[in-house]
């Protein structure tokens, strides 16, 4: 059972999404399941998504070109970004860009190789759910993801320059 951490929610919650790493040509969606599809399959099935109970989510590699994907970000209710290794932080920029450049309002999810100590940064880059790898500490992850830490930059949804708020408070 995968462990999904969401903002402001306690563990044990139900996550409706099922991520498919690849989709065969004869795939038939189950009527009661919400899927996250690989980008190519998602694009192939768009915009009708025949047989799906709702528009599926989509997952992408962290280093993919984002410019051609404007339509995906308009339609998909969930975008999941794959982190290939916890030392590879390209997904932090990818998440920020999806929020900043496309004003994406749906659920943004991180999955793959991640450390529970990275969840604070993930949230500040616009991710609102994370699939936590089995070997990572759940308590630390939840605490990091929800910690209301002061910072010099804010987050991608409410960015600011370091001194902006401090001098206007005078």
């Amino acid at each position: 059972m995968q462990r999904v951490i969401k903002q402001q929610e306690k563990d044990g919650q139900h996550d409706p999404w099922q991520l498919l790493t690849d989709v065969s040509a004869d795939f038939v969606p189950a009527g009661d399941t919400d899927y996250i599809l690989p980008l190519s399959a998602w694009q192939l099935l768009a915009p009708e998504f025949k047989g799906f109970q709702r528009i599926p989510g989509v997952w992408l590699e962290a280093d993919i070109e984002l410019e051609p994907l404007a339509e995906v970000f308009t339609a998909a209710p969930l975008v999941a970004v794959a982190f290939p290794a916890f030392v590879d932080g390209s997904g932090f920029s990818t998440g920020s860009l999806i929020r900043e450049m496309f004003s994406y309002k749906g659920e943004l999810r991180a999955f793959g190789s991640l450390l529970s100590d990275q969840l604070g940064y993930l949230r500040r880059c616009g991710y609102d759910s994370v699939v936590l790898p089995d070997d990572q500490d759940m308590d630390i992850a939840i605490q990091q993801f929800n910690a209301d830490m002061v910072s010099y930059q804010g987050d991608v949804l409410q960015p600011y320059t370091p001194f902006r708020r401090r001098i206007s408070a005078d």
Partner: peptide, 16 residues
Amino acid sequence: EIIRQWSSLHPEFAFL
């Protein structure tokens, strides 16, 4: 100093 603060614990650029 502005760069020091902006770059300190910047969420996007900690795993370059």
